Simulated scan of single mutants.
Amino acid sequence: MQSRKLQEDGWKPRWFQKEGENGSFRYSGGYWEAREQGNWDGCPNIFGEFNEGLVESSEGRLA
């Protein structure tokens, strides 16, 4: 899984910061602004390539 590999390579969440060593994550801001502007520059594609065939086949199953 690509997301696990990113974490192992030192990736850190973009809009969250960890509180303490064993603490939870706290939202640090920026997501809603990026979403409003449609600006996803600098966000890694953790899901791999987009495959339209998968979308079409899943849409057929939902109908």
Rank of each mutant, 00 (worst) to 15 (best):
L54P: 00
L54Y: 04
G20N: 08
S58C: 10
N51E: 13
W32E: 12
E59K: 15
G60V: 10
G60T: 09
W32S: 10
K5N: 10
I46T: 14
G53D: 08
A34R: 14
E49H: 02
L6Y: 14
G38M: 08
W40P: 00
L62M: 12
S3W: 08
L54K: 11
V55E: 04
R35I: 09
G23W: 03
R14C: 05
F47I: 03
G38V: 05
A63G: 11
G60I: 10
G60F: 09
Q17W: 05
L54D: 11
F50C: 02
L6Q: 07
Q7H: 06
G30F: 08
G60E: 14
F16T: 02
Q7P: 00
R61D: 10
K5R: 14
W11I: 01
S28C: 14
G48K: 05
A63M: 08
G30W: 06
W15Q: 01
G20I: 08
D41P: 00
S3K: 07
M1H: 11
F50W: 13
F16L: 08
G23F: 04
A34P: 05
W32F: 10
C43V: 15
W11M: 09
R61F: 11
M1N: 13
G53L: 02
Y31W: 15
A63W: 09
D41F: 01
R61Y: 11
G60A: 14
R14D: 05
P44C: 04
G29M: 06
K5I: 09
S24W: 08
N45F: 02
M1D: 13
G20Y: 06
R14L: 15
S3D: 06
G53T: 01
D41C: 01
E52L: 13
A63D: 09
M1V: 13
E33P: 01
L62T: 11
Q7D: 07
R61H: 10
V55T: 11
R26I: 09
V55K: 05
L54A: 10
M1E: 12
Q17K: 15
E56A: 10
V55M: 09
K18D: 01
D41T: 07
K5Q: 13
S58G: 00
N22D: 15
Q17E: 15
D41W: 00
Q37M: 06
K5H: 09
Q17M: 08
E33D: 14
L6V: 01
G20C: 07
E49P: 02
N22R: 13
E56G: 00
R14N: 07
E19S: 14
N51C: 10
N22A: 12
G48Y: 03
R26S: 06
G60Q: 14
M1F: 09
A34G: 06
K18N: 02
S57C: 02
V55D: 02
N45T: 05
E36V: 03
P44W: 02
S28L: 07
L54V: 11
L6S: 04
E59A: 13
S58T: 12
K12S: 06
S24C: 08
W11F: 15
S3Q: 08
W40C: 03
N45P: 03
